[in-house]
Amino acid sequence: MTTPLHLDVRRRAGGGETETELSLDVPSDLKYVGPAVELIAGRLPSGPLSPRRIRFNFRTALAEALANAIAYGNHHDPARVVRVLVQVGHDVVRLHVTDEGDGFDPDEVPDPTLPERLELEDGRGLFVLRRLVDDVAFNAKGNSVCLTLLAG
């Protein structure tokens, strides 16, 4: 099967230590979320994150961020892509996911654990994301998120 997913892996010196960068452009179709996650997780250098954190925290967080970017950022528009950049340092992994949308205000997303929202099908993505990683930071526009996973 041909795939439009082409991972670029680079090693670069930064701040006195070598960092590995993985970058991938993902088409705005939810069917690519799983394959993109596996492609990146499979090439993630061992080091800062334990196999367990890669299997669960890293994979789930990347899947959440990608799905949000494709659905709510790019509105499934095939002309738009989601850009993923993973920076792997000695004691930290930073995961940047950027869409081509107009952004949103993360503070306006309601708490999905409220009793009246508990049985809704959607609306848990950001909540789950915040609990899987050590830091979640959006840019001012709200179309790019940086997820930080500290070593462990």
Partner: peptide, 13 residues
């Protein structure tokens, strides 16, 4: 291996 929020949502529905 893992379940995302959409997976949780489908179980709820």
């Amino acid at each position: 291996g893992y379940i995302d929020s959409s997976g949780l949502g489908v179980l709820v529905s």
